[in-house]
Write a protein that binds this DNA or RNA. Structure first.
Lengths: 347, 347
DNA sequence: CTGTTAGCGCATTCAC
DNA sequence: GTGAATGCGCTAACAG
């Protein structure tokens, strides 16, 4: 592999001149510039990124870490879309992405610190966001440049998040408008910010509508279809009535659909079902699922923009930016009641 | 940040001694070893991976590239599972993963070559595998260490693949056993090896059963639910009869389910439907979908093992290894016919 | 067992 | 404008 010296020799200049040409320095004669360029082509020269990183103390690499838990939390397609968004802007700005998937929060934290201390990356994007997040605390303490996808409960940090409260609020309002009054809420683990926020939007909408919040209608479970199904079964068994389900994840909505089938309840007439994430594969359920569409790709892209901006203009870290992306309710048949708006039911 | 020199000074030894302690060299006295260790802790020393990479000409980083097309091809959860598998063994063997998602094959090829030429990675895992694959050709030409997830049509390369021919063969046999005789096949783009292989298994099973292959029952389309739906509609319109669908991707199976609903065909009685990938979210369709389960996690893990093995024992590249992982047919209601095996139909 | 020397490939002073 | 010298932080001979 050719080095800068080889090029210098061929172009009959010094290595530093070659270096300048690479860097695009201006005070260099057109003639030698040409000669160096030709020499580079001749030996098929490509700068060694490692050597450059060492000399400049910057790697042009950012780390993206994820703990398995978070991966499940946001259902799968979400994850790969975020990655695509990140990758796309990284590519454009000539950065690389170092990926690390951990089993739990503790492992993720160590991985993050290690990547930074070993100087493998210039900054990090983390997608965790718990209510009490030790990872974020650690990153702040070590003054590491990072952006979180999600949001931090206490400390102000650079973050990109979707407006969960607002989305959940609107979703609930939609259900109310369709005439549902006894809306059950299936929550993921409450330690996750996303769960807290979505629950809040739900409560807020009920409050505004003057409908009391029944704790019995709120269930918490792990992210899974089964969890959603069981939660509803439990409610039913304990005699809690509900005519709609706000599922804070599409997986729960799947469970709700199964519940409806199991108990022969008509969706949407007897049970309205609304999910979160608008997983592409799930717009084809029977009936098609109403769901909150999240801008996953944009989430990743914005996070990367934010991080790179901060890395290249360190003073930007001063004005902590928290970006919030809108989401949109995709209304489909699982909540489109015929009985409510107009009394004609055609079955 | 502390360097090896700082540690050396504190432990009153030379930098090379510190380096030896890090490397775990044996011929070094227990006493100085201790002293060095203490010094390292004292200043919280962590070796600079970049400097080490430069000195050793090895980065302990492998690149994983993917073009958007391939990402779609294998439906999404597949992708993140593969990544998890790769990440898990990388972590264990202290390697890092550099991720790059491209828009198309050409871009992916350039990205691969660049990563290698810039010396950012020691080797690559690529998940493309077309019938005529220019990426693989390029990697071979440049003598780059790499492993393919999938397989190469012509050149022998290190690869990890699932046994698509066999899986498709078994799936078809299952349909035949259930009494289906007019089995339609929905294929993805034929330029992909996976499509070719699955089609072959299908044909082979029909052949063994003495059933002629009707080209009219074979459709090719892009990976999407809509594609699957339209393919069947087209068949129906052109008067081709079929009593089962072998969908070479779960997305197609979704389309087939919609087709059945649309034309009020009972599944599995009037139409058997069998998918590929066993996407977790889709075991909850109505009726539950029979599908070929792919070991995605293992695919990623094995690919990484293979690559790292090759990187650390270069002579291993001699005996080109092609690993083939088995898959398993998950039989559910969408193909479990009651009418076929015993004539009692209970509806 | 341990220290000295010499790079790894490039960027960046400081001279001229 | 360009070259020479020095260093980024670590590893790897070569001595002793």
């Amino acid at each position: 592999m050719a080095t800068i010296k080889d090029v210098a020799k061929i172009a009959r200049v010094s290595p530093s001149t070659v270096s300048r040409v690479i860097a695009g320095s201006d005070r260099i004669s057109q003639k030698t510039k040409e000669r160096v360029r030709k020499a580079m082509e001749e030996v098929n020269y490509v700068p060694n990124a490692i050597a450059r990183s060492l000399a400049r103390s910057r790697t042009r690499t950012v780390g993206f870490t994820l703990s398995r838990r978070a991966d499940q939390a946001f259902s799968n397609p979400f994850f790969s879309e975020v990655l695509r968004g990140m990758s796309s802007v990284a590519q454009m700005r000539d950065y690389n992405i170092l990926l690390s998937i951990s089993l739990n929060e503790e492992e993720e934290k160590e991985k993050c610190l290690r990547l930074i201390r070993e100087r493998r990356v210039d900054g990090l994007i983390v997608s965790t966001s718990r209510v009490k997040d030790s990872l974020i605390d650690a990153l702040l303490r070590e003054e590491i440049p990072f952006v979180v996808i999600g949001r931090s409960a206490d400390s102000p940090v650079m973050s990109v998040n979707n407006d969960n409260v607002q989305a959940s609020f609107q979703a609930t309002k939609h259900l109310l408008k369709e005439g549902y009054r006894e809306i059950a809420f299936i929550s993921g683990p409450r330690e996750l910010m996303v769960s807290v926020d979505r629950l809040q939007g739900y409560k807020q909408a009920l409050f505004e509508a003057g409908i009391p919040v029944e704790e019995g209608r709120i269930a918490e479970t792990d992210f899974s279809e089964e969890g959603g199904f069981q939660a509803l079964c439990a409610m039913r068994e304990s005699g809690v009535a509900f005519d709609a389900v706000l599922a804070s994840d599409d997986l729960f909505a799947l469970g709700a659909l199964r519940f409806a089938t199991h108990y022969r309840m008509d969706v949407p007439e007897e049970l309205g079902i609304l999910g979160f994430n608008d997983t592409p594969m799930m717009s084809h359920t029977h009936p098609p699922l109403t769901s909150v569409r999240i801008l996953s790709y944009e989430l990743g892209a914005e996070a990367m923009e934010l991080l790179l901006g901060g890395l290249e203009n360190p003073e930007k870290w001063k004005n902590q930016k928290e970006i919030v992306l809108p989401s949109r309710l995709e209304i489909r048949e699982s909540t489109r009641r015929k009985g409510a708006e107009n009394e004609k039911s055609h079955n």
